[in-house]
Amino acid sequence: MKGLLVKDLRIAAEQKTLLALMLFCALICLFTMRDPTFVIGYMCLICATLGSTTCAYDEMNKGMSFIMTLPYSRKVYVFEKYLFSLMMGLGAWVLSTILATACMFILKKPIGAEYFSTVFMFLSPIFLIPGVMIPIILKFGHARSRIALFIIVGIVLALGGILSLVGSVNIGMGNYFFDAGEVYGMIRVIPAGYIAAIITVITIIFFVASMLLSLALIKKKEY
């Protein structure tokens, strides 16, 4: 796997101007915005997409045929993509958390449980972004994956819209009466720790399912 990691790190190094610009913007945001945790989300989101960027580079000039002749199995190729995405995302999370915490100290803002729960909340997208992007790119290729991604984002937004509508209505069906507001109320009273645990479990299940899906997709592919 070492060769693939070296390859992807060199591709990431190609993005050095973008990454330097990102860091510059992050530093400005740290001191100009009221909420330094914004920077954590910003840096994590950009760096978590680096893994899928390397997929696009692999595909350029029909490069996948050659890469698949390297002595690594297809399974190793897929695992490396997820590992690389996590390395980049977690690296950005650690760096941005250090910067944000330092900024909180400098600005003399309170660092408590709420701050740390926000910081840990940003771990979830680090797993979710490659979990969504990698199988889409493997299935559709880089060019068509953008269209697929637009469609998926559209479906998610539409579902969100439907749920918000449902939240404002009450539906009666015989003896059963569905009150969405009551359901939301119940969710709100669940302790934050439980919600964090539920999100963590869902994220892990999603990430593993995404890896298995990517593996199934790449095994079927012909280069």
Partner: peptide, 12 residues
């Protein structure tokens, strides 16, 4: 192997 139209990314 050498593939006729495939190699590492040309950014390397």
């Amino acid at each position: 192997c050498v593939m006729t139209d495939s190699f590492f990314s040309e950014t390397f």
